[in-house]
């Protein structure tokens, strides 16, 4: 069974997200709760403000599934509803059929690495 993952509407005002670290590789078996990728939602463009409304999230998978195809890479900016990845419940299942349903995920707010952490000591 194929399972799709589209960029969800995490925030009612977002139109897209920035892909950060992708934690899983194509072909990998993802355990229940396994991390898939980090996303940044930046509302600055929609609502310019000196203190930008930027939120950071991690997408974890709530199905036991195999990551068969990644549609995005780090730095990409998919729009809401655009495909992020395709999963299957069997490791070698053909990918030519339509997804049976969306993969179940949890979208969790995470603390980003501080830019200051990159300061050389």
């Amino acid at each position: 069974m194929l399972l799709s993952l589209l960029l969800p509407q995490i925030n009612p005002y977002m139109t897209d997200a920035i892909v950060g670290v992708v934690h899983a590789a194509e072909g990998a078996a993802i355990p229940v709760g396994g991390k898939l990728m980090d996303l940044t939602v930046d509302l600055s463009a929609a609502a310019p403000h000196d203190c930008p409304a930027i939120s950071h999230f991690r997408v974890t998978v709530r199905d036991r599934a195999f990551l068969r195809r990644l549609d995005v890479a780090r730095g990409d900016t998919p729009r809401v509803g655009q495909p992020l990845a395709l999963f299957s419940t069997e490791p070698d299942e053909p990918l030519d059929g339509p997804p049976a349903r969306a993969v179940r995920v949890a979208i969790v707010g995470v603390i980003p690495q501080s830019l200051w952490d990159e300061v050389p000591s």
Partner: peptide
Amino acid sequence: GDEDIQSYIGF
């Protein structure tokens, strides 16, 4: 309210 974490192995 939108967070529904069922496993913490991803963190």
